[in-house]
Write a protein that binds this DNA or RNA. Structure first.
Lengths: 163, 163
DNA sequence: CCTGCAAATGTTATAATGTTGCAAACTTTG
DNA sequence: CAAAGTTTGCAACATTATAACATTTGCAGG
């Protein structure tokens, strides 16, 4: 399952998308939530792209396949997916990416390559722990943690331009 | 326009603003950068508010004092201030806040209270270290780190509504 | 079946945030 | 002063996100 999250290495992406969709369907069934066609299609589009997609990117994609949607349609689907932990919003990019740990209520750490645009979601308990400790020191009660690191991924150090 | 708010502890905020401005002037002199009247005024407005200000908040404030600025004026001033480490941008809020460690090349951790809107910038070396370690594990080279924690500040736990 | 409610989607308009491009004013420096 | 570079003014525009209200769909109970 971690392989699914690694854009650095080539892999069978179609399989990884269908796995994500299957997981999503299971999670929604379990939570009595309706993964409607639009919501599922949005999730699929997000997963098909290794790079985070903006809401209007998704809108455009839906447009090219005949579904002439308006912004609220997409934002509502995204809200649903966020709510159920199926995607993350990357605040520093105004974009959305598939959650690689769907189901486990969590908040990932995102490594965003400035060169190729790929994003890697880490499950970094040490980071979370450090943040929680720092917050506890000043009696602050954390509810949502945003950790986004922009930089260079391994492949783009040295030989830039990998898309 | 956000009303002025008390931070965790009462203090002489005017003094703390003038200190920040004095520091900024020193830093700019040292770096051969021009802290022009607009830039200084924007920095002052940001410091006078304990809550992060949006670019358009600043724009409106400048408007009420007769300076009828356009968005680029504000964004350019903000870019300058960011460049020189005098303010931070809070991505999850689309807003800007004064940097409490200006001059020391660093990246803070921000605790954002959802109740009162105040923001506390921590210097949390443990967090930074944990993030860097996690990035190093996957050979990712971090350049800019965004850490924003939304939650409840001490004053707003229990008795909500502190502005 | 149908009926009525709640959830989901469609539709239109608009708000909020951020950028581009070019001209004018100002600063610095030779 | 004059040239060069930086900063600001200004108009238009691009992108991201939400509000408000109408319509359709799914589904439980009569």
């Amino acid at each position: 399952m971690p392989e699914r999250a690694l854009p650095y290495r080539p892999h069978n992406h179609e399989a990884c998308v269908s796995q994500a969709l299957a997981d999503a369907r299971a999670i929604c069934r379990q939570q009595n939530a309706r993964l409607t066609p639009i919501r599922e299609r949005v999730l699929e589009l997000i997963w098909q792209s290794h790079k985070p997609l903006g809401a209007y990117d998704i809108l455009a994609m839906l447009g090219t396949e005949g579904h002439n949607a308006a912004p609220p349609t997409v934002y509502r689907a995204l809200d649903f997916l966020l709510q159920h932990g199926l995607v993350h919003r990357i605040a520093s990019l105004n974009a959305f990416t598939g959650c690689t740990h769907a189901g486990e209520h969590h908040r990932g750490t995102f490594l965003i390559c400035r060169e190729c645009g790929n994003v890697l979601e880490l499950d970094a308990p040490d980071v979370t722990r450090a943040v929680e400790a720092a917050a506890a020191d000043v009696a602050f009660r954390p509810e949502e943690i945003t950790m986004e690191v922009a930089g260079r991924c391994p492949r783009c150090q040295g030989e830039p331009g990998h898309a």
